[in-house]
Design a protein around this nucleic acid. Sequence first.
DNA 1: TCCCCTTTGAAGCCA
DNA 2: TGGCTTCAAAGGGGA
Length: 389
Amino acid sequence: MPQLSSGGGDDLGANDEMIAFKDEGEQEEKIQENAFTERDLADLKSSLVNESEINQSPSAAAVRRAQQQQGEQRGFAEKHREHLDGVSKHQDGGMYKTPTYPGYPFLMLPDPYLPNSSVSPSSNKVSVVQQSHGMHPLTSLLPYSNEHFSPSPPHLPTDMSQKTGVHRHQSQDLSGYYSLPPGGVGQITPSMGWQSQPVYPGLSPCGFRQPYSSNLSSATSYSRFPHSLMLGPSGMHPTGIPHPAIVPPTGKQDHDQYDRSMYVKPQEVKREKEPKKPVIKKPLNAFMLYMKEMRAKVIAECTLKESAAINQILGRRWHALTREEQAKYYELARKERQLHMQLYPTWSARDNYEAGLSGVAGEKSKADWGKKKRRKREKLQDSNTDNSL
DNA sequence: TCCCCTTTGAAGCCA
DNA sequence: TGGCTTCAAAGGGGA
């Protein structure tokens, strides 16, 4: 598994020249990929009938289908990688100087961590990342809010925390972005609340032209990543969006959590008043960020719905990514962890680890967790026994 | 209704 | 320090 080395990236660069090239090439690839996928999908479906039984998983059929499709697409990806490798041999530069990966809008962000990072509205580098489920898959990278984590200060009404447009100073470093005093989550102003924000003030949903969107199915409608980090000094502070890392203790995180933060139903109000401790989710790793972004695309291309099969495809695609492409996600994940760490300095993965919760914090007893552990252990032993036979 | 599946990576735990 | 375990997302499917 390629890792983003701290000192690496000598070949992870792209310059302006490469941008234009890849931009055009990406469109061609998109078209080719779509045609390729559609053509082979038909063949695949017919061939599935005769496919031998290899995968014994419950969703074996779907997984097999996914794997076969992935195999085809992987061929393309590998070709793509070869192509990119060839390009990289001729073009060298900092990868974040000119992010040119359609579908990776976050690379369009003026990176607060990187000097000279900027986004020009006139740039033809289009971020065409899919916005599934009403939020950008990388929305989690947005600054974490303590809106659900700690009650609003008494001097501010609760709804104030859900209002947007409260100006906050933005600088080029994390602390500037989030104005996080040492210590604290509790000191984050309520104005940092997250909100549903399909369209950002002063920006179209994409901000830049989206040349690829017309080539994609509705399920793969790409939009520019409305990340706070992308916003310039005049942009609305990103922290007006609820962060997916914070999950109500009553259940799994909803995709409309942002909306819920703004349009709270009476019933939900009652629920929120319950003194249950919200869950702070783990920050997403690179692959999770990639999955969030590409899931809908895979679903659209492969007409799959089962997440297990989709994840298999995504796993293969992940391996098919170039180092440069993966590096972007590693960098994003790194920033995500940094943000998480700054917003929840006292949080530990152990909090969720020990609770044995997967989306439902504190709802499961340690006994349940022990059962789960036992089940897994037994399952593992069973598989080992089977293999030894 | 709850859990499993399936993926990779990060983090925690334990010997 | 290395190996193992859990959790993060996602949603269909099965019990």
